[in-house]
Nucleic acid binder design. Structure first.
Length: 857
RNA sequence: GCCGAGGUGGCGGAACUGGUAGACGCGCAUGACUCAAAAUCAUGUGUCUUCGUGGCGUGUGGGUUCGAGUCCCACCCUCGGCACCA
């Protein structure tokens, strides 16, 4: 080739300057033209791709990069396939960090939050994420949280939101109530070194427990579409158990301890919950939680003093610390109850390991068949009586036998199996009016009030004459004042008469507003619905459009939301359905949980100093590179180990691609965009090879994209480029020239166009730049490539020949060869003969296109 | 302790319903280009080896099978979740 052309060919290089230039131009164009905006009405083929919206902390981190790149690849892929993709983004904008920042920097939380949103929006745009920015929402805007309030009031009307006094976890540093799930190792989840205390407060709750069964039922629909472990975690979280409620009447021997309270309790009887009523004949004592109300009724100072001291001691330890303390402590209360089956007198104890919040806060203790009861009985020398025996073998020595078996020493029930006894005993209790079957859940009602400023105001008013009154719907939203000063640590709302003072919606008299705000999980429980109609003023979402787009087809986010957010969002979907806002059952038809981004095998964190800032890469290698690496380095659901060398490798691939396409176009100006399979097949041998490879790649990459296996899809694209390089690229430029008569130009047009289209979801900037060089006019014209199954077949295939299971040779055979012919060819191979000759062939195994195995003796 | 996921080269990771283990990438090595370096291109790269192309190789030990990373049993380790839930 002539020197001048060669020189120009060498100059074709993808530089960082070029990358920065075309990426920035493209972003401006997308922004100017609202490229990814879709209208609800005109969407014929809807696909809803949702990623978990971020808390606007100020900067995006690698976790965001990964999550949103995955979502974007899905959205772009589906768009090329012809879907009208709803791909929105917004801000989970309420929450604690804004308040902490306000105290630190003296900026109001609102201002701080809005600044952060602006900064992060810019970063996300720089990433090339194809959001419909016209649908952007921020949960801290009154237009949004108005609907939190509306939902709350509707729930309140139906008794699904209620107030109760409850012992709650209290973080002295946050000055707020923590949900049980926010307590980590006895400490606040945000202040790892601050032990949680107990405090009694009047709190707002959502009755999520009423939906426990439905939340479990709903899993059936999600099986196979949600990660198995998320479903398991939710099942455990809900913690369904089926057992028996049984009543143990008060025994008159209790009079001594209870004194005048005896008559009151006599009417009540002690109610317990057990899953092992079959062991009831082995009950040797009862155990009450230290919080159990019966303990309040003990009057005899002989018992009262010790019990009060014990309760005081237990109270000092926070709820979770109590769970950690394994040593079992307790004492006798002076109370006795009567065994419902035998009429025996049973002593009642109180014990630190009995949970007030589960069941009835009282248990029947069967040390012979429960490990905890056994340990307690040993500690306090209480009798142990075995009543269930294994079908075969012996009762373990000096331990509880906790398995099911056959009953003995159990009056009329002796001889029954555990399962039979549970049925019959419960049935008999029910007949006597002393018990019933009972399904119990671990799940608690959702405590939603927070003693915080930066959240949705709970829209209720306290009136001296009418009590607790919800705000009128026409007065919503109850607006959170944004211009505030943080005087101290408590909510500034308490010092704002303009917020506090109002009139009662019922009687009109002067009244006071609630100053508690809502848990931010309320915001994120229904945001997926708001994206449908983000600006709608008279409702949450247009019902018709919602029906079109919901449920979400692909929801992508972190595994850390497996229980709380994902359970609450499912719950809210049911609620919104019942409120006739949406027609929906499960909100997320499919869920993908991506792994963490780690560095050097450890989680990225400030303290370890191993944080990688996405901005550095965006400003140098560009968005395509960072996207490509994020998707290539690990399967979506696994942790991704960040590697700067790996990033360089991703950039190298893009540079190779650029050089190939631009070089090819330079030498063959007729190279063009070709989005359909060429009519004529190439005639050259290199052409035939690439023809087959292109078809095969299209088929496998399509499959990989469907299953979100981006890492393998990218590997296949790299292979295709490697093959193209091997067949059509040489430093001297000679191989680049193609002859029209061999149909290689059509082939290359098709192959390169397909490669670029398949790369588009991953690296849209370079992909579009090169496609435009080939002649693409409008991004909208780009389609996902189609291939022919038949053309993807290789004519010859390498078959492995084994002798006695060991690979001895590899031979190339036509794909459609008959079994006998294949075996004969294999036997003729020198290498095989060496191992087979003179021996008896006992068995011949032939798996078409795969393997031949001779078993010789 | 219980539940779940997973252990594959120097590293990240491939391998469809049992059928060439290590695709693709990183790293490394050698060569080409260059005064040189970088970049780029080409070749090689599990391990041992008496270099016969043979032995050994997917956490460990057994088993099923013509054939096991894949299936079965036991165990070890790592990660995630739950943890006195009666």
């Amino acid at each position: 080739m002539e020197n001048e052309i060669l020189k120009k060919l060498r100059e074709i290089q993808l530089t960082t300057e070029k990358i920065q230039e075309y990426e920035k131009n493209r972003i401006q164009k997308w922004d100017r033209e609202n490229t990814y905006h879709i209208e609800n009405e005109s969407a014929k083929n809807p696909f809803y791709c949702l990623v978990m919206f971020p808390y606007p902390s100020g900067r995006i981190h690698m976790g965001h990069v990964r999550n949103y790149t995955i979502g974007d690849a899905v959205a772009r892929f589906k768009r090329l396939q012809g879907y009208d993709v709803l791909h929105p983004m917004g801000w989970d904008a309420f929450g604690l960090p804004a308040e902490n920042a306000a105290i630190k920097h003296k900026t109001p939380p609102a201002k701080w939050t809005y600044q952060n949103i602006d900064a992060m929006r810019k970063q996300l745009k720089r990433m090339g994420l194809s959001y419909d920015w016209q649908r952007e929402i921020a949960t801290c805007r009154p237009e949004y949280y108005k609907w939190n309030q509306w939902i709350f009031i509707e729930m309140m009307k139906r008794g699904w939101a209620y107030k109760k006094t409850a012992p709650v976890n209290w973080c002295p540093k946050c000055e707020t109530v923590l949900a049980n799930e926010q307590v980590v190792d006895g400490c606040c989840w945000r202040h790892e070194d601050t032990p949680v205390e107990q405090k009694e407060l009047s709190q707002w709750f959502f009755k999520i427990t009423e939906f426990a069964e439905k939340l479990l039922e709903g899993h059936k629909k999600l099986e196979g579409k949600w990660p198995e472990r998320v479903l398991t975690m939710q099942k455990h979280w809900i913690g369904k158990s089926e057992g028996t409620i049984a009543q143990f009447p008060l025994h008159e021997a209790s009079k001594e301890a209870l004194g005048s309270s005896y008559d009151k309790l006599k009417k009540e009887a002690l109610e317990i919950y057990t899953t092992r009523i079959d062991t009831v004949y082995g009950v040797t004592y009862m155990a009450l939680a230290p919080e159990h109300p019966w303990l309040d009724s003990i009057e005899n100072p002989q018992f009262k003093q010790a019990i009060d001291a014990f309760r005081e001691e237990v109270k000092k330890v926070s709820l979770t610390d109590r769970e950690e303390a394994k040593d079992k402590k307790g004492l006798f209360t002076g109370i006795y109850v009567t065994h419902p089956f035998t009429g025996e007198k049973i002593p009642v104890w109180t014990a630190n390991f009995v949970l007030a919040t589960y069941g009835t806060g009282a248990v029947m203790s069967v040390p012979a068949h429960d490990e905890r009861d056994f340990a307690f009985a040993k500690e306090y020398n209480l009798p142990i009586q075995y009543v269930v025996f294994p079908k075969e073998g012996e009762i373990p020595e000096d331990a509880a036998f906790t398995e099911y078996g056959i009953l003995k020493n159990s009056g009329p029930y002796s001889g029954l199996s555990s399962a039979q006894a549970r049925q019959k005993m419960t049935h008999d209790l029910k007949e006597k009016g002393m018990g019933d079957f009972k399904v119990q859940y671990r799940l608690h009602d959702w405590l939603l009030s927070r003693q915080r400023y930066w959240g949705t105001p709970i829209p209720v008013i306290y009136c001296d004459s009418c009590g607790i009154v919800p705000e009128k719907e026409e007065n919503l939203p109850v607006v959170l004042p944004e211009e505030v000063e943080f005087s101290g640590s408590s909510s500034p709302l308490k010092d704002m008469p303009e917020f506090l003072k109002t009139s009662c919606p019922q009687c009109g008299k002067e009244a006071t507003r609630e100053t508690d705000t809502m848990d931010t999980f309320v915001d994120s429980s229904w945001y997926w619905a708001r994206y449908i109609s983000p600006r709608k003023e008279d409702g949450i979402a247009d019902k018709k459009s919602a029906k079109k787009f919901l449920p979400v087809n692909e929801y992508i986010g972190g595994i850390e939301h497996a229980t709380m957010h994902l359970l609450y969002a499912r719950y809210f979907a049911y609620i919104l359905n019942d409120l006739d806002v949406l027609e929906i059952d499960e909100p997320f038809a499919k869920l993908t949980t991506q792994g963490m981004v780690i560095k050097d095998g450890r989680k990225m964190s400030k303290s370890l100093g191993n944080i990688v800032d996405p901005d550095d890469f965006l400003q140098n290698q560009g968005a395509d590179t960072i996207r490509l690496f994020s998707l290539f380095a690990a399967p979506v659901e696994k942790d991704l180990d960040w590697s700067n060398e790996g990033v360089e490798g991703a950039l190298r691939f893009l540079k190779r691609l650029y050089r190939f396409v631009m070089g090819l176009k330079f030498v063959n100006p007729d190279l063009t965009l070709m989005q359909t399979v060429p009519e004529k097949k190439p005639t050259s041998s290199r052409g035939k090879k690439i023809w087959q490879k292109t078809h095969e790649t299209i088929l496998t990459v399509t499959k990989d994209f469907e299953s979100l296996s981006f890492n393998t899809a990218i590997a296949r694209l790299m292979e295709l480029l490697n093959d193209l390089y091997a067949e059509f690229f040489s430093e001297d430029g000679e191989k680049l020239k193609v002859e029209k008569s061999s149909y290689e130009l059509e082939l290359l047009s098709f192959s390169v166009s397909s490669l670029l289209a398949m790369l588009f979801p991953v690296a849209p900037f370079l992909s579009l730049t090169l496609l435009e060089e080939l002649g693409l006019k409008e991004e909208k014209e780009l389609k996902w490539p189609q291939a022919d199954e038949k053309e993807a077949q290789k004519s010859e295939v390498v078959i492995v020949v084994q002798v006695n299971g060991k690979v001895r040779d590899k031979i190339s055979l036509p794909v459609d060869i008959e079994k006998e012919a294949a075996l004969q060819t294999a036997l003729q191979s020198e290498k095989i003969r060496k191992y087979v000759e003179g021996k008896e062939v006992k068995k011949q195994i032939y798996v078409p296109k795969k393997i031949i195995n001779f078993v010789v003796g």
